[in-house]
Design a protein around this nucleic acid. Sequence first.
DNA 1: TCCGACACATAACT
DNA 2: GAGTTATGTGTCGG
Length: 421
Amino acid sequence: MMSLSNEDLQYRKGDPTISPDDATTAAAVAAASSAAAAAVAGIPQVQLKDEDAHHLAQHHQVSHHHDPHHAMVQHQQHLHQQQLQQHLPLHTHQQQQQLQQQHHMHHIPHQVQQQHHHHLEMLAQANEEDILEAANRKVAPRSSDLFRVGPGFSETRHHQDIYCKKNDMDVNPILEARIDRGFETGENGTWIGYKRNYFTLVASFSLENFDFNRFIQNKFYTYEKASKDGESIEKKVEISYFAIRLVAKCSDDEVAISLVQHTAKRDKGPQFPPPIYPAVPGDMPDHETVRASCNKRNGNKIENMNKVFYFDRAEYYHNTNLDTIKDDSVLKNYPSDSIARVARFERIQFTSSIRLKSTSVNSRYFTLHVELLGIIEDEDAQIQPILLSSIETPPLIIRGRSPSNYHKDRTSGYRPHIHPH
DNA sequence: TCCGACACATAACT
DNA sequence: GAGTTATGTGTCGG
């Protein structure tokens, strides 16, 4: 019972609280949270590296078959989620059996009935151990419970104005994003994630007063900050297309933080920086939809989900009797026919190289930022991203690999101390 | 002490 | 319902 070797791995449903260590950090977080907003104001002009350019060119396949089972799957998972939210016990039959065997309780009820006192005692003990056992159980690696809505994002912050080319109207972009996996709240409202675990985030944008049809019939421009002869000027530039990017920042803005994305193969597959998604305006799917979109291998289901997450330009051109030549809107500049309506970032982790220990009183925390980019072409026909607007999370505490992070508190890594009598 | 690599276990998915 | 997949996290060893 005392050891936590792989032989007695037992998985539980999560129930987060916060550790004293986190509380210390949280104090610093609270003190710094106003400064955090200020820190974002000075976001440097973004530069596109080679690898980013490569990701911009990433291609996604979309097709459009109908899956009659899809709605049912979602419905069932919705029911499951309701159960989880009501904290119904979710022990599997197997787990119950293991528990009984461990506690030498199997096949004894007949005897116990004749010794009522004993019976109560044993019930009490069983209950106590059940609670201990339940608390000791870790979150199963594939548990639905790992999909949890994370911290909300700030209001959209504007960095560069967007104008509609047709009438020079100032256009107001609105970014939305949601974390769907990987973060839990501590007792005092701090958001906690684990360096070793994945998180999932979805994001989309819209332009105020521009419904989708109006959007794809227009072009947009912005201004690029540049310096000429030592003077800073703003140069009018057309936006070839829009894109959504995910970045992480540290409270200590000297420290650069990067993210990695794994494939479902994890260690056996390649690692990438999170992609930059060329995107058109889209509606945010709900949490259940994101959950249902993960780890599908069935082609029909994947195609069905692609309809939520991607816009198929080829199909649109086909339906409207247009093509890349005839079209003179922002749409024709997108690098692929498969264009994100919703940017989905799955299997993202903070890079393992990040240092998590705070060096001073200023405990470190991180924030995630979703950025709306305007992709432009510079004089040399090179694509450049202009940061148009962004939203950010509240401070996030990322727990490292230290075993202490897996023993103290009721997070997904919670391991209580067991006191033998 | 931190990290890459490997390993085990288990629910989702097919 | 059985086989496969994805992923939290335990562990070893540099």
